[in-house]
């Protein structure tokens, strides 16, 4: 229970950081950390498929793409952001927590729990024996992402 709570707190904390941090790089890393926590929670809740997807795709692949893109952008002009973000998000966050605390416990009791079972196996089993075609798809997505970055950040080629 303590571990589960700690994981959930970590998840929420890093998610909030991902939104509030101004530095894009730190924000992307916070998002990766959040999804790492979520992936661990999935594994602990006996959902290795979800855990595998969360860690490999969100924490791994997408973070790499984010960081790659951030590395290619120039830290030029300061972009002025709307000040509304500073208070709108915390307001919604607090409101959500209050609603969550009041409603969720009652609501969850009414929903029957799904029978757990079928998906078992190690990380490797799931990825290699269960979802191999997804790996091909993931490779294709990575290729598309890399080519997209190469194409959209190409320099000079057009005008030289």
């Amino acid at each position: 229970m303590i571990v589960q709570t700690a994981l959930l707190v970590g998840l929420v904390l890093f998610s909030v950081l991902a939104i509030l941090l101004r530095d894009l790089l730190k924000s992307a890393i916070s998002l990766a950390a959040a999804s790492l926590f979520l992936g661990i929670i999935f594994f602990r809740m006996n959902a290795p498929y979800a855990g595998v997807f969360e860690i490999s795709v969100v924490a791994g692949l997408i973070t790499v793409l984010f960081i790659l893109t951030i590395a290619l952008t120039k830290a030029g002009d300061e972009v002025r952001e709307s000040r509304a973000v500073n208070w709108v998000f915390p307001l919604f966050f607090v409101a959500f927590i209050i609603i969550d605390a009041l409603v969720m416990k009652g609501l969850l009791r009414k929903i029957p729990a799904l029978a757990s079972g079928a998906e078992t196996g190690t990380f490797g089993d799931v990825l290699w024996k269960g979802r191999t075609f997804d790996l091909v798809g993931q490779i294709a997505v990575i290729l598309a992402g890399v080519f997209a970055v190469l194409a959209l950040f190409r320099k000079g080629d057009k005008h030289d």
Partner: peptide, 18 residues
């Protein structure tokens, strides 16, 4: 498979954005 449908849809979509 439903998830493969989603995944390959994304493959085509990501390339098409660029």
């Amino acid at each position: 498979d439903l998830f493969n449908v989603y995944l390959f849809m994304e493959v085509a979509a990501v390339a098409s954005y660029a």
